[in-house]
Structures are given as C-alpha cells and as structure tokens.
Design a protein around this nucleic acid. Sequence first.
DNA 1: AATATTTGACCCAA
DNA 2: TTGGGTCAAATATT
Length: 280
Amino acid sequence: MAMLGSSSAVVLELMTMGYQSAAYLGELLRAASPAQAGDEQQELAAEILRCCDRVIAELNRGGATGATTGKKRKAAESAAAAAVTSPSLPVTPTKRRARGAEAVREVRSGTTTDGFIWRKYGQKEINGCKHPRLYYRCAFRGQGCLATRRVQQSQSQDDPAAAFVIAYYGEHTCGGDAAAAAACRDGELMPPAVINSGASSFAAAWNMASREPASSLAVERRSCDGDAPSETSQGWSPSFSSEVELDVVGFDLAGADSSASPVWEFLNGSFDWEFVINSL
DNA sequence: AATATTTGACCCAA
DNA sequence: TTGGGTCAAATATT
C-alpha cells in the first residue's frame, strides 16, 4: 500500500489545499460574524472540512474500497499477539501510541475546529516552541474510536491560515460513519438516511462554541460494541453528556433514491475509490 | 450530581 | 537521561 499513483497524489495535494482553504474560510467567517449569527455558515465550512478529511484519509490509505477495513492496527496486533503467546502475563495492552511511527497526516490550519469532537487529554511544553503542544483524542473513544490528534500553535503568527499545525493519528471509526453505524445498530432509532435538519447537511457535530442543542436529534447509543476490549483506561462512560449527544446526523439527501447516490456512498464509506483513481 | 479540563506524574523510546 | 506522549487525580464547569 501507500502506493499512490501520481494522479492520485495530485488529488491528495489538491484536496489538502482545499481542506486548508476551507479552514481559512471558516476562520474568516468566524472573524466576520462572531458568535451567534455565523453558526450556519460555520457549519457549512465544517462540512466542507469533513468531506475533505474523508477524501484525504481515503487517499492516504491507498484508495482501498470500502470493503476491507481490517488494516494494520499495529498496537492491536501486537497486543493480540502478546495475549496469545503469554496469556497469563499482565501484559499492558499498550494503549500508548507507538513512538515514532504512524504519523498519519498533518495539516496547517487557521482553526482548531475540524468537525470532529475531540477531548483533550494532555498538554506539553516542547523544546523550542513558544506554545505548548495539545493532545486530543476522539470523544467517541468509548465506542472504540482511536483517532487522535496533536495540535501545535505555530510560533510565527503572521499567517492566520497556518496558525495551527494539526497532526492526526489513527482513523475515525466513528466520525462520518458514527451516525450511520450507531443508527444501524440501534434498532429503535430511525434509519440514518434523511434526517433532514435544515439547511445544512450536518446538524452540527459540535457545540463547543455554541451550546444550543437546538432541535437536532440526539443519537443516544447503548453499548453496541460487541468487541469493546477492556478499555479500562478511564471513565469513558458510554453515556453521553448533553454536550456531545448530538453527534452527527443527517445528510441532506432528501430524495427517495438517496441511498444510491454516489454522495451517499462517499459519506457512507462504500464509495468506489478505485474507480475514481483509475479514471484519472 | 456527572462530565470536561487542567496539570504534574509517569512511562517509554531514542 | 531526556524529550515527549499519556495517565489520572485534582479541579473546573455544567
């Protein structure tokens, strides 16, 4: 893997540029209309960010079709191997990320918001950096999402579009798919399609800044994780606070045939990437 | 009350 | 040993 054709490398680069542009746009909107009024616009910007993010993530993994998800989970693999070879030993399941490797992607952005819900778990002063380095993990870690990011505020504050250097680790097993996955497993909840929540497609996956749950639906999940290895690291309770309960959402594909739309496939993770890449 | 953040301690690879 | 990533108790926020 990691063999990207030159054309897909171009796509990746363009997509990354699009991502940064969208981030900058979001920053401009935020500056232009502070607080309340800009919510809808900022949601839109965040949606763009999310779309770019998914594309970039997909390209980075080599354009695999949505079928296979089982990849090299280095930590998980080693942990499993260790467990098999020496089941009796109190092998610390290595929740710690491997040291040097697996830096997935890095983005310079003017914002810290990227559409995902992160929870800060650490902060560190770095050798020659003026600002500390911030560590976040996905708020849905309790559901098995191991995505992580590291935010560094750049020293040169001249360029507002690159105020932060954000490095991402791991892939979101929640993220764009969170709503669909949750809804699919939750028999009681309505199917994911067409939960139209108004003008913008996403019903705001965050409300860090805007604390109005509004009228969006609250996706409440019960422990739908059959796997869920003893994640005893911390009290990541499977129940959500009012803060996080409206994760995702509804794609505004109000049409009846929306399930056949390539856009839906894309958002759903079942999009045929090989086709796209080969047709370049 | 529960849950999120802060912050020094702890741990591990270089 | 040191740098830096993570843990977890204390604290803040709701």
